[in-house]
Amino acid sequence: MDFDFTDDQQALREAVRRWVDKGFAFERRHTLAKAGGHSRAVWGELAELGLAGLAVPESQGGLGFGPVEAMLVNEELGRGLVHAPWTNAALAVPALLAAAPEALQGEWLPRIADGSALVVLAQQERAARWALDRPATRAERRGDGWVITGTKIVVPAGDEADAFVVPARIAGADGERAGIGLFVVEAGATAITPYPTQDGARAADLRFDAAPAALIAEDGLERLEHAVDIALAGIAAEGVGLMDRLLAMTVEYLNTRRQFGVPIASFQALRHRVADAKMQLELARSMSYYATLKLGAPAAERRRAVAQARVQLGQAMRFVGQQCIQMHGGIGVTDEYAGSHYFKRLTVLELAFGDTLHHLGEVSARMEDTAGVFV
C-alpha cells in the first residue's frame, strides 16, 4: 500500500504551514488566550485560506476534500497551536448538514465555506458521559416547525457561533437508537453562558427553552456517530501535530541547556526519555493514519478503528506531554513558555468527545471474539 501523499496534498500542507509560521506565532496565541480566547478572527483567516470549506461540497462553495486532506490540515494546525474550533466547525458540522434538506444546506453550507457563519456541534450533556444515545434535550413539533428544550455544555466557541447543530430526542427512551433527531438552532434563540477553557480557548453552556429549530434529520444517530468519528480522527491528527512540535522544542531545549559544562542532551537518562516519547509519537501517528483511512468503512468497523486510535492517542498525549514538561524543568510550566500551552492543549484534547477510559470501553465492547487483540 502506498502511504505517500500526493503533490496536491503536500501543497495543501505547505500552504497551511506557511500561514501558521507567518500569521500565528506563539505570541499571537498567547495574546488571544490572555484576552479571553476569542477565535472568530482566526476563523475568518482560515476561511480566507479556503479551510473553512475544506469538507464542504464544491456545489455549495467548498473545496470538497476528503479525510486525508483534513488530517494534514489538522496536523499543521496542531503543530502551530492554532486557536479556532476548526475540527468541530469545518469537519463535523458539514458532515451533519449533508443529511439536511437542500434548502437548509443552501442556507448554511455556503456561509460556512466562505467564513461568514460559524456553526458548531453542541452534543455534550452533563449526565450523558459522552454517550450519544442518551440526550436529555427534547424536541417536539409546534405548528409547522420544531422547538427544543434542554441544556448542552462545553460547546467550543459557543458565544461566538452563529448557530448550533443540536441532537435532541424526539421519541423513545434513553439508550434507544431510534428517535434522536438533529437540528440547527440559531444563537439568537439560545441562552449562552460563556467561559474560558484551560487551554486558553473558549466554550459555553447553552440552554434552550422552546427554542425554534430547523430539522436536519428525524433519525440522526448514525449520522451523529459518523460526524463524531470524523471529529475524533481530526483530534488524533491535531494531537500528532502538537506532540511533534512539543517534542522538537524539548530536544532543542536539551541541546541548549547546559549542566556540568555539557548540554544535558548528552545525559543518557534524558536520551532514553526522548526515545520513549518519540516512540509514543510515532505510534500515535500510525493510529491517526489508521483512523483517517477507516472513516469510509462500514459503521461497525469504523467505530472500532476510531476508538482504538483514540485510546492510543490518549495514552500518547498524556505520556509525551508529561515527559516533555518534566525534561524542561520549571520553565516548562511557566505561562510565558510555549511548551506549557502545548501541554494544556494536549490535556484538553484527551477529554474531547470522550476520555481515554471511555474509548477503552468502546474498544472492549467491540472486541467480540478477538480475545483482546486489535484486528
Score class of each variant (00 low, 15 high):
26 F>R: 15
26 F>K: 03
26 F>L: 13
26 F>T: 04
27 E>D: 13
28 R>V: 05
28 R>I: 09
28 R>A: 08
29 R>E: 02
29 R>C: 05
29 R>W: 07
29 R>Q: 09
29 R>F: 03
30 H>E: 06
30 H>R: 13
30 H>I: 07
32 L>Q: 10
32 L>V: 04
32 L>M: 11
32 L>N: 03
32 L>I: 09
33 A>T: 05
33 A>G: 09
34 K>N: 10
34 K>I: 12
34 K>T: 10
34 K>A: 08
35 A>S: 12
35 A>E: 05
35 A>M: 14
37 G>M: 07
37 G>Y: 07
38 H>D: 13
38 H>V: 13
38 H>S: 15
39 S>I: 13
39 S>T: 14
39 S>E: 14
39 S>P: 10
40 R>G: 14
41 A>K: 13
41 A>P: 06
41 A>C: 15
41 A>G: 13
42 V>T: 02
43 W>I: 06
43 W>N: 10
43 W>Q: 05
44 G>V: 11
44 G>C: 13
44 G>D: 12
45 E>T: 12
45 E>K: 10
46 L>Q: 07
46 L>A: 15
47 A>E: 03
47 A>L: 09
47 A>G: 11
48 E>F: 07
48 E>W: 01
49 L>I: 15
49 L>F: 13
49 L>D: 08
50 G>A: 14
52 A>T: 11
52 A>G: 09
52 A>S: 15
52 A>Y: 01
52 A>K: 10
53 G>N: 03
54 L>K: 06
54 L>S: 11
55 A>R: 06
56 V>P: 00
56 V>F: 02
56 V>G: 04
56 V>K: 02
56 V>A: 02
57 P>I: 02
57 P>S: 15
57 P>N: 02
58 E>L: 12
59 S>V: 05
59 S>G: 08
59 S>P: 05
60 Q>G: 09
60 Q>S: 08
61 G>L: 05
62 G>Q: 15
62 G>A: 15
62 G>M: 11
62 G>L: 15
63 L>Y: 00
63 L>F: 01
63 L>T: 00
63 L>V: 03
64 G>S: 14
65 F>I: 13
65 F>C: 09
65 F>Q: 12
65 F>V: 14
66 G>V: 00
66 G>C: 01
66 G>S: 04
66 G>D: 00
67 P>E: 01
67 P>R: 01
67 P>F: 03
67 P>A: 06
68 V>E: 15
68 V>N: 12
69 E>Q: 04
69 E>G: 02
70 A>C: 11
70 A>M: 08
70 A>S: 03
70 A>R: 00
70 A>K: 02
71 M>K: 08
72 L>M: 08
72 L>V: 06
72 L>S: 04
72 L>Y: 05
73 V>S: 01
73 V>Y: 01
73 V>N: 01
73 V>E: 00
73 V>T: 02
74 N>Q: 15
75 E>Q: 09
75 E>M: 09
75 E>K: 06
75 E>W: 04
75 E>F: 09
76 E>K: 05
76 E>P: 03
76 E>T: 06
77 L>E: 04
77 L>R: 00
77 L>P: 02
